[in-house]
C-alpha cells in the first residue's frame, strides 16, 4: 500500500531519517514504534509530502509520491492526522470537516458528516463549536474525522493517543479498529508499546532514523530481549 525505500529526510541540513525502509500493507494496522526523536513524525511527514526527502523513494498504490504536492497526495487517498492535531481553531466542527471533504472514491469507504457523527457521537453534539474551544480528546476525534472526509484508502496517524485520558484512548483505539474493518490501512506512530498493542497487527521499530525491526506484534511480544534493546529505557 505505502512503501518508503531508503528514504533520507530532515529539516534544513539536520538529517533525521537515514536510509529508512518502511512498509504499510493493505488492510493492516501497523505501528511505527520508537522513542521521542527517533524519526517517526519525520517519516510520516515525508510520506504525505510535507517534507521533501533528500533521497529515496516513496510509493503509494504503485505511484511514486516523491515529486507530488501534499494536496495531490491527499487526493490519491492518503490521509494524514498530525501529532499536534492542527485543528483550524477559528473554524467550527462542521467547517473543519468541510475542509477535508473530497469526492467519493472507488474502493474506499465513503464518509459523510452524519456518518462521522455516528462514529464520534461527541462531535455530533458540538457541530457549531469552534475548534479552538474543544478539549484535546475532542480535537483528536475531529482531526481523525476531518481526515476521513477525504474518503482515504490509507491513513497516517501521528501519535494519536498522545496526551489523552485513558477513557479517550480506548475510544480512539476502538475507532482505529473500526477503520480497519471498513477496509482502511492504518499506519500509526507511537512511543508507548502498550497503546500500540491495543490496535496494531504489525510493528516497525525505528531508532535514530533507521528501521531496526519489522514483524508481527505477536513476535515482538514474545521477544523480551528485542523489547529491552529498542524500547526499554
Amino acid at each position: 500500500m505505502l512503501e518508503l525505500r531508503r528514504v533520507n529526510a530532515g529539516y534544513g541540513r539536520a538529517r533525521i531519517l537515514f536510509d529508512l525502509d518502511l512498509e504499510l500493507r493493505r488492510g493492516e494496522v501497523a505501528a511505527l514504534l520508537g522513542r521521542n526523536g527517533a524519526g517517526k513524525t519525520t517519516a510520516l511527514k515525508a510520506a504525505i509530502g510535507l517534507l521533501s526527502s533528500f533521497s529515496g523513494k516513496i510509493i503509494f498504490n504503485n505511484r511514486e509520491l516523491n515529486n507530488l504536492q501534499p494536496y495531490q497526495i491527499a487526493r490519491l487517498g492518503l490521509a494524514y492526522v498530525p501529532e499536534d492535531r492542527r485543528i483550524f481553531t477559528d473554524l467550527t466542527v462542521m467547517e473543519n470537516l468541510e475542509v477535508g471533504r473530497q469526492p467519493r472514491r472507488a474502493g474506499a469507504p465513503h464518509w459523510t458528516p452524519q456518518k462521522l457523527c455516528e462514529l464520534f457521537p461527541n462531535l455530533g453534539r458540538m457541530r457549531d463549536r469552534r475548534g479552538g474551544s474543544m478539549s484535546g480528546g475532542e480535537q483528536q476525534m475531529l482531526t481523525i474525522a476531518r481526515a476521513l472526509m477525504g474518503n482515504p484508502v490509507a491513513i497516517l496517524l501521528d501519535e494519536p493517543f498522545e496526551g489523552l485520558a485513558p477513557l479517550i484512548v480506548d475510544r480512539i483505539a476502538k475507532t482505529i479498529r473500526e477503520l480497519k474493518r471498513e477496509g482502511l490501512s492504518v499506519l500509526l506512530s507511537e512511543q508507548n508499546l502498550r497503546f500500540a498493542r491495543l490496535v496494531a497487527d504489525r510493528a516497525c521499530i525505528i531508532e535514530k532514523g533507521r528501521l531496526c525491526y519489522a514483524g508481527t506484534m505477536a513476535a515482538l511480544d514474545a521477544d523480551p530481549a528485542l523489547r529491552e534493546r529498542y524500547l526499554s529505557v
Binding site: 504525505i48 501534499p70 494536496y71 498530525p82 483550524f88 473554524l91 477525504g150
Partner: peptide, 24 residues
C-alpha cells in the same frame, strides 16, 4: 460558502489545508 471556509482554513494553516487535499 465552501470557498470561504477553505480561505479561512488556508489563512490559518496553509500546510495542513494542503495535506487535506486543498489545491492552493
Amino acid at each position: 460558502t465552501r470557498w470561504g471556509i477553505l480561505v479561512r482554513a488556508a489563512t490559518q494553516d496553509r500546510e495542513m489545508a494542503s495535506a487535506l487535499g486543498v489545491n492552493q
